[in-house]
Design a protein around this nucleic acid. Sequence first.
DNA 1: GTTCGAACA
DNA 2: GTGTTGTTCGAAC
Length: 765
Amino acid sequence: MENGVASTKEEGFLSRMALNDNKAGMEGLDRDKINKIIMETSKGSKFYENELKRDQQVNQRITKMMLQKARITEQQLKKAQAQVEKVATALEKSRDLSRVIVHVDMDAFYAAVEMRDCPELKDKPMAVGSMSMLSTSNYHARKYGVRAAMPGFIAKKLCPSLVIVPLNFDKYRAVSNEIREIFADYDPNFQPLSLDEAYLDFTDHLEQRQHWPESARTHHFRVRDMTTAELSQEAMTEIRELSPVLFEDSPGSSPSPVGPEGVRAPAGDFEVFGTSVEEAVREMRFRIEQKTMLTASAGIAPNMMLAKVCSDKNKPNGQYRLPSTREAVMDFIHNLPVRKVCGIGKVSEKMLNALGISTCSHLGQQMALLSLLFSETAWHHFLEVSLGLGSTYIPRHEERKSMSTERTFKELSKVEEQLSLCRELCEDLAEDMKKEGLKGKTVTLKLKNVNFEVKTRAMTLPCAVATVDEIFAVAKDLLKTEIENESPQPLRLRLMGVRISAFASLDDKKPLQKSIIGFLQSANAASKNEGSGENAPVIAKAGSPAKASENNHLPPDLSETPSPVQAHASTSACAESETLTCPVCFRKVETTDLNVFNTHIDQCLSNASQKTNNGTESDTESESDLKKDREERAAVNKLRRRHEAQEKKSKVNPQKGQSSVKKDSVQKVSLIKDDNKTATSQEPQPSNSKGPVFVCPVCQLTQETHDLAVFNHHVDLCLNQEVLHELGRQTSSSINLSPRTSLCVYSEKFVKSLGPCNTIDKFFR
DNA sequence: GTTCGAACA
DNA sequence: GTGTTGTTCGAAC
């Protein structure tokens, strides 16, 4: 109520830096004094400067919004109002008050666990985390303004006697498992939000509960569960004192005091809970407390949005039920600060405040305006909030959409260190991916420099990847590009992260993967037999049978790590086009079904390998087949030699030596060359070489690189494909190209190419 | 459809 | 001495 308005009239300090007292246990604090200390401690730091910048950006957004508002006509507003009413009517129709949704939230969870395990902390202001960052604080500390997401060193300024306890996730996870077991008794499909929070649908439980005998609603105090026979009254009192570790003055509805329905045995060793919602929830909280010696708070409401707000109402160690009537809901919403609503954070709050909106009823009053100033998704959400609506269905199990790992460190500017850190992150990520059996197509690199500026760079591959080498191949390229873009200045990093997303289900990929590996295996065997110089080692690396499925045992040497193309060659192929070209017979396969395509390749491969086997292991092969085979090889070698000759010339002078290249493309290449003539083809280009984009003269596609060497690789690659297709045209009608010959065309350059891996994709088209 | 920054929990 | 993980959205391309 009061806090919304306060941030609109901030004087001099950044609203985003100021104390966020939107948290239980933080009412009635001396905000001004606390904010002064926060500002004084922060001022001048890089972090502060960045926050200042971001605050100004938000202010600009607000200015823009206000200008937009000023241009809105009466007529527009009227029309908007009609539209809003239409949507509101529809929403109102869908209002469902029949579900009983509960949001449970452990009180100051990490801090409470630490206090439970170390009673000396009980009466001290304490927080869990480090000097850099606190995860949570106990209620003593909150009185000083110390709260979650506050750096420890600032907290120490606010409260010099603060005890900071390091995080112990294993412990919290163990407790979390304990409470989840209890949740499952009330709703087996409960949705955990974090280690200490969950949504539960109590509807079904309550229905059954009505028929439960008292015995099923009777729960014992902890002492009863102890194996030791009888505990003295003193011992029991002691345990009870330990239990609500948090506070003396809890707002109410604690699981222990008897409610109207509950029955407490005189000795206090068991309690019978009633059949109402409140009783059921109180029982759940009681059981949590008995099991973990920690308290929880809960909110009971007809939907998730409201339940979450309600669980905060009587925190700590309390619960609040919002009756399931429209009237009660609307009353509840009326003065509710918008910031209390899940999804409305400090930026949205500030923007709404600028429009004079601080409570949910304001929201309802201004909906027409909001519908003109905010996106559809945003104003629909606002409208729902203003009507007290939220989801009544708790999703069972949401599938993960991304997985990431990131690390903050003290300044890292050396390229080698950055690369090796990047690899470490990829190793961690790959390990996690393996645990969940995931593969993803999009790799995102996250960088934060010493000025706290965050950048993300992503690359989507045509095929899902999972191993260290595959992920690192992409992340490394992304990182290298950023390093190049910054050069000659170094990237001064304080954080690096790697994320993988766009998951493919493993079932989709497995069969095809087998095929490609088989493909490369045959090739490897063939190339060894043939002993054909340059190709052999490369093929062996990408597709040697032992390493094909798990090629994360490559040497850690950075220069030896595979490029994305190589990574793909070893794992997968994707097909998203309408027709697919078989890499073995070069015929177009009219399908988008990878399994069908796969079967086709398998067929081709088995034909081919039969031929190969026959050739090497039996004498039954006909002369003509042998001859054909030799012809194929001769053709491939001839084309390859021709291409190599062209390539040598083009390395020296890209304009020449590419006879098949169209004129206009050549001009583009020469333009690029002029721009880069000072750079050697081996070294990353300095930032001043940004100039024109590279357009491949063969495939006509723009290449995302400023490095001529990289670009050359790509052109080589395309030329190789030309060779392939030329060969394909020559042979598709009469000669069935065997895997070993077609594999010869995977020249070293192809496999080593740094170019984007859609080249492989193209190959399969 | 992809990429990227931003907001949010 | 200002964290980590994951999701979602909107804008730009």
